[in-house]
Every structure is written in C-alpha cells, then in structure tokens.
C-alpha cells in the first residue's frame, strides 16, 4: 500500500534520513522503533508532505507522492496523528472533529464518520461543547485520533501516541489502535513504548541515525538481542 524507497531527507546540511526504504502492506500495523533523533518523526513528516525529501520515492499504491503538499497527501487517505496531540485548544471538541471532516474526500461522509468516532470515544460526545484545551491528556489524544478518523483515512501514521500519558491510558490508546486496525485501518506506528508496539506490529523497522538497521516481524525483533539490549533494557 505504501512503499518508501531510498528516501533522503535533509534539514539544511544535516541529514535526517539516509536511504530509508520500507513497506507498509494494506491492513498491517508497521512499527518504527528508534532512539530520540533517529529520524522517526522526519520519516512521518516526509511521507505526510510536510518535509521535502531530497531523493527517493514514496509510492502510495502506484502514485509517487514524494514532495506533494500535505493537503493533497491527506486527501489521498493518508492521515496522521502528530506528536504532542496537535489539537486546536480554544476550539470546541465538536469543532475540532469538524475540522478533520473538511477534506474533500470526507465531506460527504461527515455524519457517518462522526457517529463512528463518537461510538469509539463516547467521552468526546459528552464534551462536545467544551474547549479542546480543557480535556485531559488522554482525552486530547482520543480527540486527535478522532479528528484524523473524521477524514476517512485508509492509512494512519501515529507519532508517539502514548507520549506523556499515564500507563493505563497509554495502554488504552494502543488498544484503540489495535481495534482500528482490526476494522481494516492500516497503521504506521512510531512509539517509544517499544515492547508494546512490537507486540502489536506485524512488521517492524529499527531506525538508527537516519538509517534502517534492522527489520523483521514484531516477534523477531522482540527476540533480537540488539533490540532487547538497546530498546528494552534487557
């Protein structure tokens, strides 16, 4: 569904991604694991059209979307739940959700999508009129995911969805991602909770200093000594 080939991304002179290639099959959860500064967020931002890659291809189906502006990428069906719960704090919860449904691809299906999102996160219906900034951290993350789903995406890239959440809440968020995947959503998951994300993932990649150094099924990486010592502290 999504295939990244030899992607190079620079910030000025500094190289963030070096010949990164990966594959996301339809219906899969693919995890990307790596230390801070390894290039995980750069990868997501490049796919999302928020960073221009210097070289390489990003194939969505058969279309090369490298260098496309983000609104066109979104409208193809590639959504993202960005790091740090980027909600619109002074707008109400309902308005935040509406914002996700303004993509051309999603406008006609707005009411259906809203019902689906509110069924998934009933707390958002309770807080519909409240300013989004007054929600708890977990609720804000639900809102960020809900807003993304309002755009009727086929593939969602999650950037550190459990960051800064209490362990139980983080567990819930990852459980939601697993449920969404079971309903058919393809997921690209960047997550600091390596053990959990490898358990969820069908396939996983290890990113170090902008390079893919290891890849395999989630179970294989969980059993790999290098992964265990570097990311799981075992």
């Amino acid at each position: 569904m999504l295939r990244v080939e030899n992607l190079d991304v620079f910030y000025g002179d500094a190289q963030a991604l070096d010949a990164v290639s990966l594959d996301v099959e339809e219906g899969a959860i693919v995890a990307i694991v790596g230390a801070n500064g390894a290039g995980k967020t750069s990868l997501i931002r490049a796919i999302a059209g928020m960073l221009n890659p210097a070289r390489g291809r990003i194939l969505y189906g058969t279309t090369d979307i490298a260098g496309w502006p983000s609104y066109r990428v979104c409208n193809l069906g590639i959504g993202q739940v960005a790091e740090g719960r980027q909600i619109f704090p002074t707008l109400s919860v309902a308005e935040n959700l509406d914002m996700g449904a303004l993509l051309p691809r999603a406008r006609a299906r707005r009411e259906d999508n809203r019902k689906r999102v509110l069924a998934l996160f009933p707390v958002l219906a309770e807080r519909a009129r409240q300013a989004a900034g007054t929600l708890s951290g977990g609720e804000q993350q639900m809102l960020a995911i809900g807003r993304c789903l309002m755009g009727a995406p086929e593939l969602v890239m999650f950037d550190e969805p459990s960051l800064g959440l209490a362990p139980a809440v983080a567990h819930n968020v990852l459980g939601t991602i697993r449920d969404l995947n079971r309903e058919g959503l393809t997921c690209l998951l960047v997550e600091q909770n390596v053990a959990l994300s490898l358990k969820l993932a069908g396939r996983a990649y290890v990113l170090e200093n902008g390079r893919i150094t290891l890849s395999g099924s989630g179970a294989e990486l969980l059993a790999d000594d290098r992964v265990r010592s570097a990311y799981l502290g075992l």
């Binding site: 999302a48 928020m50 502006p69 983000s70 609104y71 990428v73 979104c74 409208n75 959504g79 993202q80 960005a82 980027q86 909600i87 619109f88 704090p89 002074t90 707008l91 308005e95 509406d98 914002m99 996700g100 303004l102 993509l103 807003r147 993304c148 755009g151």
Partner: peptide, 20 residues
C-alpha cells in the same frame, strides 16, 4: 474554520490536511 485552525496551530492544520 480553516483560518482558526491555522491561527491555533499551523503545523496541526497542515497535518489535518488544510492547504495553509
């Protein structure tokens, strides 16, 4: 709506698919 999104958080607006 798009303006308010841009005012609140331009990066988030771009991530949400708005042609900022």
């Amino acid at each position: 709506y798009f303006w308010l999104a841009i005012r609140e958080d331009e990066q988030a607006a771009r991530a949400a698919g708005i042609d900022t």
